[in-house]
Simulated scan of single mutants.
Amino acid sequence: MSVTTTDILISGGGVAGLTAAAAFGAAGFRVICVDPEPPVTDETAATADLRTTAFLQPSLPVLQAAGLWDRLAPHAAALQIMRIVDAGGPQPEARIVKDFNAADISDRPFGWNLPNWLLRREMVARLAELPNVDFRPGTGTARVFTRAAEARVTLTDGTTVSTKLLIGADGRNSPVREALGIPVTTRRYGQKALAFAVTHPLPHQNVSTEVHRSGGPFTLVPLPDRNGGPASAVVWMETGPEVARLAALPVPEFEAAMTARSCGILGPLTLASRRSVWPIINQVAARMSGERTALIAEAAHVVPPIGAQGLNMSLADLRVLLDLACAHRDDPGTAAMLDLYHRRRHPEVELRARGIDLLNRSSMLSAPLLRDLRAGALDMLYSVSPVRRTLMRAGLGLR
């Protein structure tokens, strides 16, 4: 039986896996990237991922080095202000509004927002430019066998690949993680999220807004103009039954509901895409490495979509892993290198996951007294300038 050899095998062709393939390819490694599902790169497709990703400042060098940012920048909407709105009073109306402005800590925006389907389109195009990257959509990981010198992976098409470093970027139910027997700790909230795009009469002015009432945040994230008018991406987190009810509403009733939930801060919202539903969990793997294997992104950690943390944690994984691999270019994937990767990333991942868990539970509060306490805490933290700046830097992952 013939065996294909490579430096890096990436299991998973989502946004994180494609970014990793471009980054390792641009760094000169031989890369094979596989995913059982071909990437959906058209917004109108029934299975298109309608969520968006906000790349925060520390992620920009990763995208630039991978040769991705020049492709993505023309489609990105800048995020200059993160606005927190507490609407926890008797009526769904803004009672406390606090703006966290990137200008307080930097001369650049907090980040840049892009639709996930478009990210896949541009990333696949970038991989086609790299002769040392072999992207195999429609092929997944079937079996994994590791030993000190290599990981030997059998793919779903029967091909066997020998690789110095296997990267599991294959999602929250990662076949690679399961093959290595790495357990996870999972927190469930009984929540789901609706993701969709809207247009609105008032310009967003590059402000990303989280409206907190109960059930979870209602988040509006700027998008480039759509059909000549202002547009935003929305993630609306609620209990599972409530999301099911909202997803089934006729469009006029849904538009009325989402406008009310947004407190009308951008005027009447008009649905501009289909509605997709995503489960919300908080999950962290016990280890981020194994023999000849590294876990990144949702294979290693899943967090609720609060503060644009998810993919930026993933790109922090990639940044550390790529730096270590380049420092061990002759043999990436040694036990010492992968143990160092785990030690550098896992404590920060656990800390950030716990912080996001706390924020999510706070956003779900329904009792009026507890909502009042949440509003008071927001007011207090914002009012102290050094604390406010520290929170903004921590949210970006800056030291």
Rank of each mutant, 00 (worst) to 15 (best):
F254H: 04
P241T: 03
T185C: 03
F254G: 04
P252E: 07
L249S: 01
L119E: 05
L155D: 14
A125T: 01
H200K: 09
L223K: 03
M258K: 08
K192L: 11
A128V: 03
V243K: 07
P252W: 06
V133S: 08
V144S: 01
L194P: 09
M237F: 04
G181D: 05
A248N: 14
K192Y: 11
A149N: 15
S232H: 00
P203H: 06
A169G: 02
F135P: 01
R172S: 14
L220K: 03
A169D: 01
D225Q: 08
A125G: 08
A247K: 07
L180Q: 09
V235P: 12
E238M: 13
T185Q: 13
V198T: 10
L246P: 13
T139R: 09
F145R: 15
N132W: 06
V243F: 07
P250R: 04
L155I: 13
L155C: 14
A260D: 15
Y189G: 10
R121A: 13
E150C: 04
H204Q: 06
N206Q: 14
R152E: 09
R187Y: 08
V234Y: 04
G140V: 05
R226A: 08
E210Y: 13
I167W: 07
L180V: 00
D170M: 03
F254S: 02
E178C: 01
A233V: 01
L155G: 09
T141M: 04
T186Q: 12
R172P: 00
V234D: 02
V198G: 07
L119T: 10
G215S: 14
P131C: 03
G138F: 10
L202Q: 14
Y189N: 09
T209E: 09
L166S: 10
A148Y: 12
A128Y: 02
A247Q: 15
G138R: 08
A247W: 08
G140N: 10
R226N: 09
A257I: 07
L202I: 13
V207N: 08
A256W: 03
A193F: 04
A256E: 15
E178L: 12
Q205C: 03
H212L: 15
G158A: 10
P241N: 08
G168W: 00
P224D: 00
D225H: 12
I167Y: 06
E238R: 15
T209V: 15
P217M: 15
S232G: 01
K164V: 06
S262A: 15
R188S: 09
P252S: 07
R121N: 03
Q205N: 13
N116F: 05
L220S: 06
L155V: 11
V198C: 11
R172M: 12
A257T: 11
G171W: 02
A193Y: 04
E129N: 01
A197T: 13
S262Y: 05
N173K: 09
L194C: 06
G140S: 05
N227G: 10
P217K: 14
F145C: 07
S232N: 00
N132P: 07
A148I: 11
H212D: 08
Q191S: 13
I182L: 12
R187P: 00
V235L: 10
S174E: 02
V221S: 14
F254E: 01
E122N: 00
E255G: 09
R261T: 15
V161H: 07
N173D: 13
L166K: 05
N173E: 14
P252Y: 05
F135N: 02
A125I: 02
E129S: 11
